[in-house]
Design a protein around this nucleic acid. Structure first.
Lengths: 239, 239
DNA sequence: CCGTAGCAGTTTGCATACAAAATGCAAGGT
DNA sequence: ACCTTGCATTTTGTATGCAAACTGCTACGG
């Protein structure tokens, strides 16, 4: 599919469009990474000039990138006073997790109606790999697999609009999750919930999967909250 | 609250920050209106120069605004080939209404847990005013009140993150609703659903309100779909 | 001693300038 | 007649320049 016929009737498989990325596009991606990974601290003014030198570009594309990131909520732009990484407060997180819950619950419900057996098998594979990391107490790998499972369900939902909103929110939350740890009890609970997620998905039980995911996200929120409370607020002081 | 004490102990009510709006900010708002109201047709290239002359600004702030609107999904930006208003396809709408349903359902549930009697009274007032317009078959006024009711519930939910995502999606959907009409049966049904919404909200029955709103949005989606099917696809050819 | 005013340096907002890419058209070839 | 090719024009992407706003410091006055 997606082939094209030229005049003589010969078939030309449509080539991948050459990836020509404009500077501002690239800058948006790079800056987003810097912010998510905490390299740029919240509330610290980052002069445009500094960033320009860092990336070797002029101010014009950089400013375009800043505007985009501000509209995504990662930066705050004060007129005539430049950009700061927006601080993620506890209140922000309290707001974000319920929204994530609603989006993921919808994704789960939609996924149940259209997921293929192959896709379920893939989620199952990811799941068991994740459980393996759990038994080995490998938290970073666990997180990575965890994220991939949620993304796989999101993909199976087949709703690009939903995915976009999910990714936007997930990107902001990830900043917090970078710092968060997990108590043993929470980790046990999360894995149990993932067992239930897999089971509901395999049975294509939309209502149940929706409920579980909503609860799962609420618990994730609690986990992050506990972790931050324990740590002291590292979100503020990360260099 | 939010007052500030100066050195002598006198109270200074914190004044509204002077609205100094930068050009690109203003441009984002104005362009958004042009797009939502259909003044700029989908898929038509709009050269930057034209817009610059229209607004009397240079290309720099205009381009910053274009990047933001593109990140909101209202524009498509093709490298070296400028901006076009993104076409709202039937498939897009099919994706958007379920997401709206999930967001509004969450808003309803949250609202039930924190809404005050005064806020309920206000929603009730809006509701009866809306019903009045319904009995008089005043569709535009009906739409306006309808929108305000949904926004009032959103406000009552007290979740700024949720509100932002809702507004973003609502802005895009509104483009379609501008053109949509309603059959008598659909209109009757919508008003009935709004009665149920008011009732559930007044009883602060979160679960029920959530279910009703989700269904309500699904029906709205069906209504728009029918309307577009009847009209032929006006979204494509609006001048 | 504290507080304010004024000034130099910095930073931002916007306009303009220039290079690369795309578009449209006309001339030439098949 | 159609398709290709090359060139002039338009449009976009990025860099630079300039004026206005902000920042921090010093000096002056109470």
């Amino acid at each position: 599919m997606n082939d094209v016929r030229n005049r003589e009737g010969g078939v030309l498989t449509k080539a991948q469009p050459i990836a020509r990325v404009t500077l501002h596009e690239e800058l948006v991606a790079r800056l987003r990474d810097l912010i998510v990974e905490g390299e740029l601290a919240p509330d610290v003014r980052v002069p445009e000039r500094t960033l320009c030198e860092r990336f070797g570009v002029s101010r014009t594309p950089l400013r375009e990138a800043l505007k985009v990131l501000a509209s995504e909520g990662l930066l705050d732009l004060l007129p005539n006073r430049g950009a700061t990484v927006s601080r993620l407060t506890q209140a922000d997180l309290d707001e974000m997790f319920p929204v994530m819950g609603a989006l993921e619950a919808l994704a789960g419900e939609l996924a149940c109606t259209r997921i293929t057996d192959e896709q379920i098998a893939e989620v199952r594979a990811l799941h068991y790999q994740m459980v393996l990391h759990y038994t080995r107490k490998e938290l970073p790998q666990y997180f990575r697999l965890n994220q991939r499972i949620h993304e796989a369900i999101m993909d199976a939902a087949g709703n690009a609009t939903l995915t976009r909103m999910y990714q936007g929110l997930a990107g902001r939350i990830r900043r917090a999750r970078y710092l968060a740890n997990m108590s043993k009890a929470r980790w046990d609970q999360a894995v149990e919930e993932h067992e239930a997620i897999l089971s509901a998905l395999a049975q294509r039980d939309a209502a149940r999967l929706g409920r579980i995911l909503k609860q799962h996200l609420q618990n994730k929120g609690e986990t992050v909250k506990e972790s931050l409370a324990a740590d002291g607020d590292r979100l503020s002081r990360t260099a």
